[in-house]
Design a protein around this nucleic acid. Structure first.
Lengths: 203, 203
DNA sequence: CCCTTGTCGAACACCGCTGTACGAGTTACT
DNA sequence: AGTAACTCGTACAGCGGTGTTCGACAAGGG
């Protein structure tokens, strides 16, 4: 039985490799099928199912770990995006980066949604969410984003359009190459204040 | 054992009542929980589980029946919407009607998505889809909807925003009263050609 | 009024999943 | 080299779902 992480226990190198393999495999499997079983994951990880349960008490704990790691990686990527200057240009850059993450992890998000307790996901999404909100708020103050709809709605719209794009790709109606471009054009138009002209391609 | 619908068999009045109750119950249950079991459905229908299987060979067949009926009802409602005149006003009316359907049946759609074969849903959605496409095409020809993005993308955007609104309501971030208004404002802005001003509230 | 058609509950077989137990074998740290 | 940590396969228990079978019992239709 693997040592429990009580206090300052240091895992054996062997175990660390297993854990890494399991989390990697889980990320891969859950990204393909949100309902992937522990058997599948263990198999892909090249590990016995028992070993998996040795490190993660339950399927839920594993998903949580995977989700946390995905969020951390996403945060790192998003943190490097330059959000200064023209809010519309900044939004374009943010969408470009966010899109790749959504495309890669949206299936994992589904897995998390019906495995993790309700509040957990919002809790982990708080930071990325706040980043988007701040940018939108700034755009509103500068008069380039509409103020006749709540900020939370605009955030939701951005999410919806990105997830919709993933669906379109899944259905074969959209080439992945065009996704970011289409999303940006759509979101910037949707964010434009009534009466103001919709911005053209700025590239 | 209930009579199989071989040829021109006429069901007994009793059976017809049961079938109706089952389909109603299934619609209600699946609209709350896409993974509702046959036991739950039978219970809500006030009917034994065996009776259910007497009329529907499998859970899948039941879901198909429910889905078909929902689509038919939706088609009837959508068929009465006036799509002539200003494309933007027509789109407002179409969204208003479509929204209620999406709000009511989106959970059922999820159930259908992971129970019915892939092509089946698109097959049943063909008609409503075409109606939206035609309106968008007309708007494009008249110069009020953008032509720099594919029609299929615009259709998808409309769907995404509506489903996103349902999510927002679910999360308690949006009041159902504002949904249609927000969706319309967002979609009409998203559809506006670059360079053209976003339309204000037209009511 | 009688017979077909439906209905019911309980029980059963089957499936796949989660999580646990056992016992023997392997691998890493010291 | 020796010990603790780790891994493995198999097997088991439990759960909840689907679909079927059985036998007894209503209820509709000609």
């Amino acid at each position: 039985m693997p040592a429990k992480p009580t206090g300052t226990t240091t895992r054996r190198a062997d175990a660390q490799r297993s854990i890494a393999a399991i989390v990697d495999a889980a990320t891969e499997c859950l990204s393909r099928d949100p309902a992937a079983s522990t058997s599948e994951i263990a198999k892909v990880a090249g590990v016995g199912r028992v070993t998996l349960y040795g490190h993660f008490p339950s399927r839920t704990d594993l998903i949580d770990a995977v989700f946390v790691r995905a969020i951390e990686g996403g945060e790192a990527a998003l943190g490097q995006v330059d959000l200064t200057g023209d809010p519309r240009a900044a939004m374009s850059r943010l969408i470009e980066s966010s899109w790749h993450l959504v495309d890669r992890f949206r299936s994992l998000l589904v897995a998390a949604q019906d495995a993790l307790p309700p509040g957990r996901i919002r809790e982990l999404h708080a930071d990325p969410m706040e980043r988007v909100e701040r940018l939108i708020e700034r755009g509103r103050k500068e008069g380039v984003f509409r103020t006749d709809l709540p900020t939370s709605w605009l955030v939701g719209t951005m999410h919806s359009v990105m997830h919709g794009a993933a669906d379109e790709i899944n259905a074969g109606r959209l080439s992945p190459d065009h996704a970011a471009e289409y999303i940006t054009a759509t979101v910037l138009a949707a964010f434009t204040p009534p009466g103001e002209p919709v911005p053209g391609v700025q590239r």
